[in-house]
Design a protein around this nucleic acid. Structure first.
Lengths: 217, 217
DNA sequence: CGATCAATTGACTTAGCTCAAAGCATGTGG
DNA sequence: CCACATGCTTTGAGCTAAGTCAATTGATCG
């Protein structure tokens, strides 16, 4: 439990209480996190990669990709709910939101840590949102790769080597583009030397700063 | 201070402390909330309407519209920062985030209330995000009007009368559409009897459920 | 009652979608 | 270890929704 960052500084009592209400999952690739009858849930990703899929959409629109360290809240309201699906061997710790919040209220520092994180998520999403609304296909794909470089390998400048856990289809879906358009953009970025690829998933970013410039302001 | 919903149940001591660190603003239309040298800020909107504009973009992309009851966190990082601009007479209460969080740590219930709200915002944004990525112009505009009906007048079904505080340009900007496309969609929805308009800002939604159906799944 | 700025409408262009056909990885059985 | 089958990925050719440019109409305010 201590390995989950916001819990690092919790008192032993709080940790113990969290242990009793936590549910751990280890999902094989492409398996979905099972629905719990009802109630909002808070999920801490501890390993692997996952996609968060919109509810009630026939095509299953991808709302976000999630990686270790991420906190995902999954509400139960019909229009707000979502499904978490493993992209690779996925490990996570799940709480019922009200149980978690009841426990966390004992430890304001924990509550604060989770709050700060979610305010951060809101900021990140705002930017993502803007991207989707106002960016060209090229900018979206470049931005996506920069994002993955940063989140998967912690690269912030210079070259970066990464393995994408999702296929072109999922990338396109999450960016609001078709699989073909994503592929064409990959080809273009490859042709201009921004990236090299080998196999389906391996991507080498020559210079993440240059790619970031392609992603636009 | 009590009029701000998450503060309703706070103890008098916490309220008193919040009073000392709160900064109140009343901005006339089209005025921007002034930058504070540095540090993250948390803003509670108490009256009027505002747009949140992306940083460092020449065109000033609109990230969100904000109304009374909304909580906005404005970070200071160069890429994450944003500007809040009044659309009508705007009233708000601003805190420096660390000061607010220090005060709120005394009252876990307050922290919890703010956290629950931000988890909610994340959900709303997810859906908004999906909209921008995967929806046609018509669906975006229909969805926008439904959203405004719900947030400005609390209408959830049946007819709805509202005054849009923003112009077509701002609507288009926030939806990733041009002013002309927004106008054409208004004309179309008007022609099909979903809405009637009078003047620039008054909109009458004949049946918000019907319009919601146009906005897609 | 003009002056001004926002909204609408029209004609044309284009980025990205659709449909369709190869080309490659990756995994399986001989 | 190689052949082949399956499902991604890439590439190509046309089409369409939305953008651009330009002109007109309509609202609002001094």
């Amino acid at each position: 439990m201590r390995d989950i960052e916001p819990f690092a500084c919790c008192s032993p009592e709080v940790i113990a209480r969290l242990e009793t209400i936590a549910q751990r999952f280890a999902l094989p690739s492409s398996e979905a996190l099972p629905e719990t009858g009802h109630g909002e849930r808070i999920v801490f990703i501890t390993g692997g990669a996952a996609k968060l899929i919109a509810p009630g959409t026939p095509k299953g629109h991808i709302l976000a990709f999630q990686f270790p360290g991420d906190i995902v809240s999954i509400s139960h309201r019909p229009e707000g709910s979502a499904t978490l699906v493993a992209l690779s061997e996925l490990e996570l710790v799940m709480f019922l939101a009200h149980e978690f919040l009841d426990a966390a209220e004992i430890d304001p520092a924990l509550l604060r840590a989770v709050l700060v994180r979610s305010l951060d998520t809101i900021q990140r999403n705002r930017i993502r949102m803007m991207r989707l609304g106002h960016r060209t296909a090229r900018q979206r794909v470049a931005g996506f790769l920069v994002n993955m470089g940063e989140r998967l390998c912690g690269c912030t400048s210079g070259p970066c080597e990464l393995d994408l856990p999702m296929g072109r289809g999922d990338i396109g879906n999450s960016l609001g583009l078709t699989i073909e358009t994503v592929s064409r953009q990959f080809t273009e970025l490859r042709g201009e030397g921004f990236v090299t690829t080998s196999g389906r998933s391996a991507v080498h970013i020559a210079d993440i700063d240059a790619l970031r410039r392609e992603a636009g302001p």
